[in-house]
Design a protein around this nucleic acid. Sequence first.
DNA 1: CACAATTCGATTGCGCACAACTAAATAGCT
DNA 2: AGCTATTTAGTTGTGCGCAATCGAATTGTG
Lengths: 157, 157
Amino acid sequence: MSTTPTTDWLRLDQQICFSLNAASRAFGGVYRVVLKDLGLTYPQYLVMLVLWEHGDLPVKKLGEHLRLDSGTLSPLLKRLEAAGLVRRERSARDERSVEVRLTEEGTAMRERALQVPRRIATATGLDVDEIRALRARLDDLTTALDAAVAEEMGAGR
Amino acid sequence: MSTTPTTDWLRLDQQICFSLNAASRAFGGVYRVVLKDLGLTYPQYLVMLVLWEHGDLPVKKLGEHLRLDSGTLSPLLKRLEAAGLVRRERSARDERSVEVRLTEEGTAMRERALQVPRRIATATGLDVDEIRALRARLDDLTTALDAAVAEEMGAGR
DNA sequence: CACAATTCGATTGCGCACAACTAAATAGCT
DNA sequence: AGCTATTTAGTTGTGCGCAATCGAATTGTG
């Protein structure tokens, strides 16, 4: 099927990474439109989802749920605080920790956010089972990629 | 299967977008390790791939291949130029256009880049057919998402 | 108790992505 | 020719993602 294997490899490579990247950015575009009413960006929306589901959390726990570190979360949370959706309070029993708490306004926003998932799901053009299947594949891929990075780190190269 | 449909929707929604986002960032981590030897970031690597495949191109064409605009490409290309991999020259017959040309060094880098795709493919833990299938799903998803954004823009939600 | 190691968050710096705008050149129309 | 609209890069500003570093607090150990 190929007379120039090196070129084929380069092109195949591009297609995997590029497709994923493109899909991710296309999703970003949809969320940008859908979340405009709420005044949230997509990562901010993810933070709100976690808080709505799990209640108040320290920054560390929030980061574990979202796979994000403080370098990303600190400024993001300040913007959410400036928007009046969240308060940040140092924990009393561990002064290193900062508790992120929903304000009344932040809690109230959940009602308005309930319409978001349907609109996103519609935009994907996929049904529930297809979404589930795709999600499973992507999670497996993420696991494999993370493991590969961990190996490279440990084994040098 | 669910007694609280709204909550289920929120969680399903989170899982789709989040899984995609996580996979994209996990890919970034792998590329960061693999491209370290070449001194390229992942988007810079994509630009080099396009140039290796299509030869010299104006910024506009480059952006069409990569779905990126000048706001992203201009500084990126300046960094590639500073690294000596690329030259930017205003077109003689259309002064608005800037041709991006590979330098000898940039052309030579292709040889070293040939090892990258194999290492990435290995990291995914997928075989060629699985990669192809996943790519097709992601491309379909991107198409659907782009169409949805276009509709929202046109129909005003 | 004293000291070292760890944890947690914030900050800084760099690069990407995108929107909005500017400037320059070209194309098209009258 | 003259005027307008379009095309093409570039610039600015905002926000995310990540690495590296710092300071403060806590924990572990002798």
